[in-house]
Design a protein around this nucleic acid. Structure first.
Length: 320
DNA sequence: ATTCTGACA
DNA sequence: TGTCAGCA
């Protein structure tokens, strides 16, 4: 029973023959066809491949991504495969956050309805606003892939412009100094890039995790700092559960976000931070006003400075 | 009888 | 992806 026909395979895997042909059409599989009648024949490997497709699809991965993942598996490229899974994970986190938000606003509306016997118009807006924000998050995803080409030269570029490099080094060092992490703490570096900031903490014996949207950047950071726990993801959907970090830092990354997105990022930081968790952000941002506003409204004590009079840095510690 | 391709929902 | 048509 080596050569299986399409219907047999379909039955075995609980899918339709049409689905199998569809996967072939999309280039995910290429079963051999018999010369005379064009009937497809499936080998054990074909079936294993289909199983893989179904598993990844079960996890919600789009067919296009599955295609790439399979290609990496063909070449035994475990690294690449891992990053596809990481990417998939980060997408799931984003969706999870999305649902969480919707549930929260729904709960809110239920409460309003209970109290007011009617639904205020602004509540409707709020819900719409929520899903709008989510779409923006998704939009940010598409750019993810092409950042990768920058990774190999990142450190060179950071070091090239001597003046900027001074700022760069001093900025990282000041973040480390202000945060003054102690042994046993767990920190997160958002937009860790090649891991330079996280590396400084690691050098001090601190357990660090890093999030970056580029898998190439992550790869470089892992190479430089094997103990760094790198993970794919973005600022607006940090791929971690609630309350796991003692501090969150971010350098030379925040300015890529709009002000609105930055505030969203802050709420995300607070989500993954422990109750007393602190935040330190630095980089070429035009203004810190909106950030300091948010921090004050949310019960943080602030410390700010302009490094070399050009690079703003802000450190926030929860009061209490 | 079964599969295939292509069109359309 | 499901469904349907017209073939081989």
């Amino acid at each position: 029973m080596i050569p299986l026909q399409i219907k047999e395979v379909a039955t075995k895997l609980n899918i339709s023959p049409r689905a199998i042909r569809f996967y072939e059409e999309k280039g995910l599989i290429s079963p051999i066809k018999q010369a005379h009648n064009q009937y497809r024949t499936f080998t054990e490997q074909d079936i294993w491949r289909l199983q893989t497709i179904l598993s990844l699809r079960e996890a919600g991965m789009p067919l296009e991504s599955i295609k790439h993942a399979l290609a990496e598996m063909d070449e035994d490229n475990i690294q690449e495969l891992r990053y596809y899974l990481e990417l998939q994970r980060s997408v799931l986190v984003a969706k999870w956050l999305e649902m969480k938000q919707v549930i929260e606003t729904t709960d809110h509306m239920i409460t309003l309805l209970k109290v007011n016997r009617t639904l205020p118009l602004e509540a409707i807006y709020k819900l719409a606003e929520g899903s709008k924000t989510l779409k923006e998050q998704r939009t940010a995803w598409k750019d993810t892939w092409h950042y990768d080409e920058l990774a190999p030269t990142h450190d060179e570029r950071a070091a090239s412009h001597s003046g900027e490099y001074t700022y760069y080094e001093d900025t990282l060092n000041l973040i480390v100094k202000w945060v003054s992490a102690i042994q046993g703490e767990h920190g997160l570096d958002l937009g860790t890039g090649t891991g330079n900031l996280a590396g400084k903490f690691i050098a001090g014996g601190i357990h660090m995790s890093g999030v970056d949207q580029s898998k190439e950047m992550l790869r470089h950071s892992q190479r430089k700092y094997p103990t760094l726990e790198g993970r794919l993801g973005n600022f607006l959907a940090i791929p971690y559960l609630e309350g796991v970090f003692d501090f969150v830092v971010s350098s030379f990354a925040f300015h890529h976000l709009t002000n609105e997105q930055q505030l969203l990022a802050l709420t995300e930081m607070r989500r993954v931070l422990k109750p007393r968790g602190r935040i330190c952000i630095a980089g070429p941002m035009s203004s810190l006003l909106h950030l300091s506003h948010w921090f004050e409204e949310n019960g943080y004590l602030l410390k700010q400075q302009l490094i070399h009079t050009v690079i703003p840095i802000i450190y926030a510690v929860p009061i209490r």
